[in-house]
Design a protein around this nucleic acid. Structure first.
Lengths: 205, 205
DNA sequence: ACCTAATAAGGAGTAATAAT
DNA sequence: ATTATTACTCCTTATTAGGT
């Protein structure tokens, strides 16, 4: 199988990145299916979701990614086996967009095939939400240090945890207002509707 | 295999497009089935859905398409191997409609055979339905993760599994209503009907 | 004609971003 | 930091269309 070695880019003016071809983790030289589970337990360097034993992954430097997360941070195109990429600012770049970065050239994205640059939305597991929520119940505005602890425990970056708390405070405030301010300006038309939401968090397990 | 080379159109007045014959990616020179997965991971240039290793694809310039997505953007007709097409404004055109574009002629679509973009319908095997159904009996609304498991087990994409469950919920609800709501709009003729609702959900198996 | 897979339109919830 | 906004992902419901 046509396989690629590691190939440093010659004369790259920026420190961190280097060219190399993408190779599946599992073929760190050789094997195929068997090694799938090798990296399970670590969080994906892109989405931060824990990698499970069923996931296929790719690695770059010390980073480890879900197969689907191994994509150019500019055009979001997923990179395939054998393809050249670079790691710059800890973000993956396809060859085209890394060259662009090197040139300080932001133009011509359209021609170069930039696609929507889809914003990526983290999907929290129940457990993660539970971690957040239980801290939140104690302290809605954790200091940076605690935030780190929480982030760590949930297996996400501090930034992601921070955003969760921001949104949670916002949500909480909004709900409070909705419950305080009469939600029914006109008349309490139907007494049947109960707004029972918001504590159905615990699911069976 | 009458096979086609790449043939630039002579003197095309518009920049990007050129004529070429469609060829399957997989025959980038040689192999057939084995290379199916070669482009997996990139998004389809038509539908933007990630191409998986099971998909067949076609390429034009740097674009890569699902086989079904490789169709004229005007008449939606899927283009076949050996057929001429052009890429204009990053959209695929069959020969007829590209010539039309060149003439600035937008009229006469109907005559020229604009077709409806045939939708493709999956035919499930009994076994697949069985997989779906047995999960459904336990949980009508599986979370995304379970959905993936199910899809995987049934050998379909997650989207297809999702649609099945959506339709199944819909179906189930409809049937429930038909059984619950008096099927006799006029009069509650018979007092014999006992409304023992809500447990006729289990299907034989 | 049925049955039903696929699409489409509209809503809810909320993670991420922008604005302040 | 907060607030407002955007946009992603999921749902439901109704409709369209493929295949016996």
């Amino acid at each position: 199988m046509t396989s690629p070695g590691i190939r440093p880019v010659s004369g790259a003016p920026i420190a961190t990145p280097y060219w190399t071809t993408t190779i599946p983790v599992t073929s760190e030289g050789e094997t195929s299916t068997a090694e799938k589970s090798k990296e399970f337990g670590t969080p994906c360097s892109k989405c931060n979701v824990t990698i499970t034993s069923d996931d296929w992954v790719r690695k770059a430097h010390d980073n480890c990614y879900h197969l689907n997360c191994f994509s150019c941070s500019v055009c979001n195109r997923q990179l395939s086996t054998g393809e050249q990429f670079a790691l710059h600012d800890n973000s993956l770049h396809c060859k085209i967009h890394y060259l662009q970065v090197l040139q300080g050239n932001k133009l011509g994205d359209e021609r170069l095939g930039k696609r929507k640059a889809k914003r990526q939305r983290t999907a929290f597991t129940e457990e993660q939400v539970h971690v957040f929520q239980s801290y939140f119940n104690v302290e809605q505005n954790p200091d940076p240090q605690d935030l780190d602890t929480i982030a760590d425990q949930a297996g996400v970056t501090r930034r992601v945890a921070q955003v969760w708390f921001q949104n949670a405070r916002s949500r909480s405030k909004r709900n409070m207002q909705m419950n305080t301010v009469s939600p029914v300006p006109k008349e309490c038309s139907s007494s049947e509707h109960s707004f029972d939401s918001l504590d159905d968090l615990t699911y069976s397990d």
